[in-house]
């Protein structure tokens, strides 16, 4: 449908465990931002994901006010713990 923005949201670690999957397909309205996508994911698992988690857009850290395009991949990044 025109005006809708399909986006794929990726979850990892504790966020993925809480949701029960590593991928959340989203259908957002035109003009939606990274922040809107985070809010849409959080609506599904509100207690497991903090209000403003780190987020990546197409494999780069992103700001919440960046606009989304159809086919974008966002990732909610739990606190990293490499090393």
């Amino acid at each position: 449908m025109a005006g809708e923005v399909p986006v794929k949201a990726l979850l990892f670690a504790s966020y993925a465990d809480a949701y029960g999957s590593t991928e959340v397909p989203l259908l957002l309205v035109a003009g939606s931002t990274v922040g809107d996508a985070v809010a849409a994911v959080r609506a599904k698992v509100p207690t497991a994901i903090p209000a403003r988690p780190l987020v990546a857009l197409n494999e780069r850290y992103a700001k919440y006010d960046e606009h989304l395009s159809p086919g974008d991949e966002i990732a909610l990044i739990p606190p990293v713990a490499g090393g």
Binding site: S14, A75, A81, G83
Partner: peptide
Amino acid sequence: IKKTVPIW
């Protein structure tokens, strides 16, 4: 690495 790399 401990600050920015998405590894858990």
